[in-house]
Design a protein around this nucleic acid. Structure first.
Length: 676
RNA sequence: GGCGGGGUAGCUCAGUUGGUUAGAGCGUCGGAAUCAUAAUCCGUAGGUCGUGGGUUCAAAUCCCUCCCCCGCUACCA
């Protein structure tokens, strides 16, 4: 069988639009790789699709009072469209809510069950008697047992950050009916991940030194900690139903069914031939493009699932042969965050910007070895200084020169083979960078070729030759045109639209030229060229400023929406009198172990001694606070923070970066005095 | 808190089996040229390689401390 490569890109979660971070981490690099391979004439299949199950989607649906299907339909279509507009050239873009995916996932589950890698466990879980359903973590709210926040979620308390088990919540309430849920035993299915410890260690070590270091290290880190069996079912009605008797209301956990989506999509695309891309075969490679948050699922979880499936020998899945995971891309120096309004979504900006300039800016800043940054000024700089000035201007000066001096026809002259061959050599180097998934370097090296072409034009001064020796000028321009044609191939993985546009101006049909023959002289003398168009108009400062302003506005708006509602209602003096503020002298202070922010203080309030736990450790050391006279709220209900009782609260000036300064009394005053 | 990754020129990033004056692109400054979207080409300046220590004849590179950023994770390696 011929050597072939399956490329998958992590399935975007259909609970929102993809953003520029996804593009940089996964889809642009995957697409560049795939397009390169196609130009090499290699057999390749590029698979992706929407990941459409899981609790966050049902929560969004509840919030909007629509069905989960309505949510995933919306974002599936939106994202699919965005990918098309960006030229991400999937061979097939599936979705995990499809009927085929249900079948494939259930078959996978049953096969693992038969092979003995799935267990069941009974465990207590909260059940909503009114809604008649078990409640997944996030469907329960209640009082946090650690910090007493009344609105902690079943999986985590947003106030103190503690991860919780839903049964730990005090006064739990169902988000579905509002009623108080009861604890009931429920059965869940577990994948025996622990059984694959040894096999996975061998698997990962066999790729040590070949895969990116960060990927191997991350996987090792998981293995070192010892693998635990993981639950693969949840009580939910949105997802792939567990195909067993007595499993009503149980669906497969999204982490289990999502990677199977790669198989499903292949099957839907090639119903009769999908095994060609999935059956173990030394000539078949499988590359998983994904972001760093996804490494564990593709190096540990899914390989283990495949190993379990393969055990009986009826079908042997190809395990991944490379996981070129990327780090994250920040935006204007800050982390991307949809909830903070700090994001760029392709469907928003593709009306204003050529997809290729976005692809190029991303390609120049791929977060291959560490987090990188996307900024509008950077987009402007790359567009104006490189795309317009180096590539666009090279095309323009060459074509215009031919138009003005050679009647707009390819000069009928021999080209400079030595120079063309040197370009062919450079392209070989670039090819090996693509093979190694060093795509940012490949991008830079590609533009070095175009820089050399500008230099060639300069050095040979055809504008002088045309007056003294027309034949020599013809040779130079013929060469420059051939180089432009070659360049249109070399840029195709990065700038597919631009490549087509250049081919159009050269009047050559796309498709006949390969990566390996692109440097050969392939034009025909006297062939007329097409209409010359400017490839990249420059981006003006005003336009970039407008984008920055727009982003600030979005962020401000998001902040206002999420900011806690501060009541503007006036309070009476009597209300204020309810709060007893007193001075207190700090006698002792120590850091609370295992906490970042907390200090445990012993304070004197008059004759009384109190213990107060305060979140000021990031700004104050225990030593620096001992002896200070501070202000506390003396009649606050006591609370437990990290299991330590706190009898009161101290006052301090806060800003968004945390506590800035304690409120102390200006003059030395004794403790226990009232503050008014 | 634990684990993993990162902290190198104004900006975005390369660079570790330790070894001559630490690299690239962009930006800066100067020059050449004028075919071209004033676009190109050549040259210049600019870094105590996060901090503090250690190993070594020699450290951006190896070891240790600490600080900062990112991801994963949560009675836990």
């Amino acid at each position: 069988m011929p050597k072939r490569t399956l490329v998958t890109a992590a399935l975007p979660y259909a609970n929102g639009p993809i953003h520029i971070g996804h593009l940089a981490g996964v889809y642009v690099p995957a697409d560049m790789y795939v397009r390169y391979k196609r130009l090499k004439g290699e057999e390749i299949l590029f698979i992706c699709g929407s990941d459409e199950h899981g609790v966050p989607i049902t929560i969004s649906a509840d919030k909007e009072k629509v069905t989960p299907k309505a949510i995933v339909d919306r974002y599936h279509e939106l994202n699919k469209k965005s990918f098309e507009r960006l030229g991400i050239s999937f061979d097939y873009y599936g979705r995990t809510s499809s009927e085929e995916h249900r079948k494939v996932s259930q078959e996978f589950f049953l096969h693992l069950l038969e092979n003995g890698f799935i267990d069941t466990k009974e465990e207590p879980q909260l059940y909503d008697e009114e809604a008649k359903m078990f409640l997944p973590d996030r469907y329960v709210e209640g009082t946090c047992p650690v910090c007493s926040n009344p609105d902690a979620r079943g999986d985590q308390c947003d106030n103190c950050g503690t991860y919780l088990n839903q049964t730990e919540l005090i006064n739990p309430r169902s988000k579905v009916s509002g009623s108080k849920p009861v604890v009931r035993p429920t059965k869940h299915w577990y994948f025996k991940l622990s059984a694959f410890q040894k096999d996975l260690e061998n698997f990962i070590e066999s790729y040590a030194g070949k895969w990116r270091d960060t990927v191997v290290q991350q996987a090792r880190s998981w293995l070192k900690s010892g693998l635990q069996d993981r639950p693969i079912t949840r009580d939910l009605d949105w997802g792939v139903p567990v195909p067993l008797e007595g499993a009503a209301g149980k669906v497969l956990y999204v982490w289990f069914d999502a990677p199977i989506g790669y198989v499903t999509a292949t099957k839907e695309h090639l119903p009769d031939n999908w095994q060609y891309w999935w059956a173990e075969d030394k000539d078949l490679e499988w590359l998983c493009f994904l972001g760093k948050d996804n490494i564990v699922f593709h190096t540990i979880m899914f390989p283990a699932m495949q190993m379990g499936y393969n055990k009986d020998g009826s079908f042997t899945y190809r395990l991944t042969t490379n996981v070129p995971a990327n780090e994250f891309m920040n935006l204007e120096g800050r982390k991307l965050s949809k909830s903070r309004g700090w994001t760029i979504e392709p469907h928003e900006i593709l009306d204003r910007y050529d997809a290729d300039i976005i692809r190029y800016t991303i390609a120049c800043n791929l977060p291959e070895s560490k987090d990188s940054d996307f900024s509008w000024k950077d987009l402007q700089a790359h567009t104006n200084n490189e795309l317009a000035d180096i590539l666009g201007n090279y095309a323009n000066r060459t074509l215009t020169f031919v138009k003005n001096n050679f009647d707009g026809k390819v000069p009928d002259a021999a080209s400079d083979e030595q120079y063309l061959n040197s370009i062919g050599e450079a392209a070989k180097e670039i090819g090996s960078l693509y093979e190694k998934c060093r795509l940012r370097e490949a991008t830079a090296a590609t533009f070095d070729i175009i820089r050399s072409a500008n230099k060639y034009f300069n050095d040979h001064e055809p504008w002088k030759l045309i007056k003294s020796n027309r034949d020599d000028a013809a040779k130079v321009l013929r060469t420059c045109l051939e180089v432009l044609r070659a360049v249109s191939t070399y840029i195709a993985p990065i700038l597919p639209n631009t490549s087509d546009r250049i081919n159009g101006m050269l009047s050559i049909p796309a498709g006949k030229i390969t990566w390996d023959n692109a440097h050969l002289a392939l034009l025909t003398g006297h062939a007329p060229l097409g209409e010359i168009k400017v490839l990249f108009p420059k981006l003006e400062n005003e336009q970039i400023e407008a984008e920055l302003t727009r982003m600030q506005e979005m962020a401000t708006k998001a902040e206002q929406q999420t900011a806690p509602v501060v009541s503007n209602a006036k309070i009476t003096i009597d209300d204020f009198k309810k709060i007893k503020l007193k001075t207190a002298k700090v006698l002792e202070a120590e850091a609370v172990p295992k906490s970042k922010k907390l200090l445990k203080l012993q304070v004197a309030v008059g004759d009384e001694r109190r213990q107060i736990v305060a979140g000021i450790a990031e700004k104050y050391t225990p030593e620096s606070i001992v002896g200070k006279t501070i202000v506390i709220v003396a009649n606050l209900e006591s609370a437990k923070l990290m299991g330590i009782e706190s009898q009161g609260m101290l006052l301090a000036v806060n800003d968004d970066k945390g506590v800035v300064s304690l409120i102390t009394s200006e003059k030395e005053s004794s403790d226990g005095l009232e503050v008014r």
